[in-house]
Design a protein around this nucleic acid. Structure first.
Lengths: 89, 89
DNA sequence: ACGAGTGTTCGACAGCCGTCGAACAGAGGA
DNA sequence: TCCTCTGTTCGACGGCTGTCGAACACTCGT
């Protein structure tokens, strides 16, 4: 719970989550978020946080690392939280 | 949204919210939270944060300041978030 | 009027965390 | 093989914020 709220209290990380929710699973690599105003090392850090809290699943496809939002698993553990974040416009 | 998550990402503030949820409205003053491991100035700060984010309503009763959890108002603006915090065991 | 109890405000401090650049590792194409 | 692209790791830095004690303001019994 603490980790979940910490993870989602960062606006950049919420942006990542919202963007992943709008595309099919495994369709976005980490590097496809270049519009975010942070360095790639910072982006890598954010992905680590989201993965550690159970919001993300990652999978290597050659040189790229594809992402999938763990909607059901996360919603089971923290009901309504993901829906709330996704409702943020 | 940002402010709401920031407010609830602090464990002390979640304790305050949970405790207020278990008693009738206007039944707890700020000073009745002495079991929390913080100084009273820190406690006052936390109450300010919770009030500013719309989770609390306060009312002076003599020297004491009584609190009320704004359940409906907060749940309207951030559906499910308060329920999630209250489910924290 | 005095003292006790309640709560706020202020300045100061410490730790956490988001941020960056540089260096590194691996995959894949020319 | 070399170069490019992708992503991680590392050390360093800065700002935010939770924390405290002291001082202040107010209410209410005694």
């Amino acid at each position: 719970m603490q980790a979940a709220l910490d993870a989602l209290s960062d606006p950049i990380r919420r942006s990542i989550v919202r963007e992943l929710a709008e595309v099919p699973d495994w369709s976005l690599a980490c590097g496809t978020f270049k519009e975010l105003p942070v360095a790639k090392s910072t982006l890598s850090h954010h992905f680590t946080v989201l993965r550690n809290v159970g919001l993300l699943e990652q999978r290597d496809e050659g040189a790229r690392r594809l992402n999938r939002l763990r909607r059901e698993e996360f919603d089971t553990r923290f009901p309504g939280l993901l829906a709330l974040v996704l409702s943020e416009h």
